[in-house]
Lab assay of single mutants.
Amino acid sequence: TETYETTDETEARKIAEELKRRGLTFRIERHGTTIRIESD
């Protein structure tokens, strides 16, 4: 499991693209301005 936290929408998108490219599944949670991406 890898966890990323960012407040930057663009960075979050880049992380999501990278995880997809590596064939990982992940979920995105939003907590206020923080975007949390957690891979399975």
Rank of each mutant, 00 (worst) to 15 (best):
K14M: 12
I35Q: 00
I28V: 10
D8L: 05
E29N: 07
R13Q: 13
E11G: 02
T34P: 00
R13W: 13
I28R: 02
T1L: 12
F26N: 02
R21M: 08
G32F: 03
R22C: 08
E17Y: 10
R30S: 05
R36I: 12
H31K: 09
E5W: 14
H31Q: 09
E11R: 05
R30K: 09
D40A: 12
E5R: 04
E29K: 09
I15F: 08
R21P: 00
T34F: 08
T10Y: 10
E5M: 08
I37F: 04
E9M: 08
E38L: 15
T1W: 14
T7H: 08
T10H: 13
K20S: 11
G23A: 02
A12I: 04
I35T: 02
E2D: 06
I35D: 01
E9Q: 06
I28Y: 05
T33L: 13
R27Y: 07
E2W: 15
E29A: 07
E9W: 14
I37G: 00
G32W: 02
G23H: 04
E29T: 15
T10S: 12
T25L: 09
T7I: 06
T6N: 01
E18A: 10
E29W: 13
E9L: 10
E38T: 15
I35M: 02
R22G: 02
G32Q: 03
E9H: 06
L19F: 09
T34A: 05
I28H: 01
R30P: 02
T7G: 06
E2L: 15
L24W: 07
E29H: 11
T33N: 13
K14V: 09
D8C: 06
G32E: 05
K14Q: 12
L24A: 06
D40P: 15
T7F: 06
T10W: 12
T3R: 13
Y4K: 01
F26T: 04
I35W: 14
I15A: 02
T1M: 10
I35F: 09
E9D: 06
T10E: 15
L19K: 01
E9T: 05
F26D: 02
I15G: 00
T3P: 03
R21K: 11
T10A: 14
L19T: 00
R30N: 06
R36G: 01
A12T: 01
A16G: 06
S39H: 08
R13A: 13
K14I: 10
R22E: 03
R22F: 03
T33P: 09
R13T: 10
T1S: 11
E11K: 06
G23Y: 02
S39L: 15
R13H: 11
E38F: 15
A16Q: 11
R30A: 05
S39I: 15
F26H: 04
L19H: 01
I35Y: 10
I15V: 05
K14E: 10
R21A: 10
L24G: 02
E38I: 15
A16L: 14
L24V: 11
T34Y: 08
D40N: 13
R30L: 12
R22W: 04
E29Y: 15
E11T: 09
A12M: 05
Y4W: 14
E18N: 10
T10V: 13
A16Y: 07
R21W: 04
H31S: 08
E11V: 12
R13P: 01
I37Q: 00
T3I: 15
F26I: 10
Y4C: 07
E2S: 08
T7Y: 06
S39D: 02
E29F: 15
R36H: 06
R13M: 14
T25N: 13
R13G: 07
E38C: 12
T1C: 09
T7C: 09
R27H: 10
R22I: 03
I37D: 00
E11F: 07
R27W: 11
Y4N: 01
A12C: 11
T10G: 13
T7R: 06
G32I: 02
E38V: 15
G23W: 02
E5K: 04
E38Q: 13
R22H: 04
S39E: 05
E29L: 13
E2K: 11
L24K: 09
K14N: 10
T34N: 06
K14C: 14
K14F: 09
E18L: 08
D40Q: 13
Y4S: 01
H31F: 12
H31E: 09
K20T: 14
G23M: 03
T6L: 07
E17W: 11
T6S: 03
A12W: 04
E11Q: 08
G23P: 00
E29I: 15
T34S: 06
G23E: 03
R27G: 03
T1H: 12
E2F: 15
K20Q: 11
R30Q: 09
E38D: 05
R21F: 06
I15M: 05
E17C: 15
K20V: 11
E11D: 05
A16S: 08
A16W: 09
G32A: 03
E18V: 06
E18R: 08
K20D: 06
T7M: 08
I35V: 04
D40I: 15
E2T: 13
K20I: 13
I15K: 04
I28M: 06
A12Y: 05
K14D: 06
D40K: 11
H31T: 09
E17M: 11
T6P: 02
R36A: 03
A12H: 02
I37A: 00
L24N: 04
T1G: 12
R22M: 06
T6Y: 03
L19P: 00
I28W: 08
G23T: 01
E18I: 08
K14W: 10
K20G: 07
T33A: 13
G23Q: 03
T7Q: 11
